[in-house]
């Protein structure tokens, strides 16, 4: 895959930190993410993984460190030095964000087709037929029947909403997608189907993904690399299979062994 042979990192995170007053949100997080790579961030509640994701997606301002992103034109920019207009443009073209609660990432009152088409219209597509065609195409790719295109996501099941949210994000061919517990709140069989779909899309499109999850099975299935967080710090990082099969840190060992084996 050509995307993987790119020798420059897509995203470089350098000693990123965020304090909430005297409390630590996260501290000293550094990593590089290459095109086509899937990174899982795992840890228990309060370990700082959500703070990290908010920082990465520029929803929070860091108190220390920097994030550099290689733009589509090849230039490397510090994302916090982008103007508000540039950052918002990045968020709706080259980046995607899949929320745990689909209602946060979708417009619940407008149809599925308009949800998918919104990003296209935001970047200036003014041809109804083309927008509709792209929406149909993407609904098909996330396994939503074409005859649901004019239904509002209110009438969709949890799994369908999540798939619609993914389609809405991917329609502009982003290179980097953030996912916050994308399978949270879904039952096991729906989770499995969604994971299957995600795995296929990520591989087909060569997406880079940063996925935050507390579910080690999700990390195992989707990610190439894993970062284990505890109390705001990264305590262990490595290839997913390596870390999960042979955890080095006592806390990671505890985390891995606390997964129920059926």
């Amino acid at each position: 895959m050509s995307a993987l042979t790119d020798d420059l990192p897509l995203l470089t995170v350098d000693r990123l930190g965020k304090n909430y007053g005297s409390r630590i949100g996260c501290r000293d997080v550094s990593f590089e993410l290459y095109a086509g790579e899937v990174l899982a961030v795992v840890g228990e509640s309060g370990s700082g993984k959500s703070t990290l994701l908010s920082l990465l997606s520029t929803q929070l301002q860091p108190t220390a460190g920097a994030i550099r992103y290689r733009m589509r034109d090849g230039s490397v920019r510090d994302v916090f030095e982008l103007s508000q207009a540039e950052r918002r443009f990045l968020m709706r073209t080259d980046w995607g964000f899949v929320h745990q609660d689909a209602a946060q990432g979708l417009r619940m009152a407008v149809s599925a087709g308009a949800n998918v088409g919104e990003r296209l219209m935001a970047v200036g597509d003014r041809h109804y037929g083309n927008i509709r065609h792209a929406a149909l195409d993407w609904l098909g790719r996330v396994e939503i029947e074409a005859d649901r295109i004019d239904d509002a996501p209110r009438s969709f099941s949890g799994g369908m909403r999540q798939r619609l949210q993914i389609a809405r994000n991917l329609v502009t061919n982003p290179r980097l997608v953030f996912m916050d517990e994308p399978t949270g709140g879904l039952d096991v069989s729906v989770q499995a189907r969604l994971l299957d779909l995600l795995r296929g899309l990520v591989a087909d499109l060569g997406l880079s993904v940063i996925i935050v999850t507390h579910d080690l099975a999700v990390a195992r299935l989707l990610s190439h690399r894993i970062m284990v967080m505890r109390q705001g710090r990264v305590i262990e990082t490595g290839l997913t299979d390596q870390v999960l099969d042979d955890p080095r840190e006592p806390y990671t060992q505890l985390l891995v062994s606390s997964v129920l084996q059926v």
Binding site: Q84, A85, R88, R107, V110, S111, G113, A114, G117, E118, R119, M121, A122, V123, G124, R126, Y128, I131, R132, I149, D150
Partner: peptide, 22 residues
Amino acid sequence: RTMHGLEEYGLMHVKLYEDIAT
């Protein structure tokens, strides 16, 4: 206000899209 400031008017077309779809 931010949308006006940054001239982000794609959302208005979402409304027109909904009209045509319906």
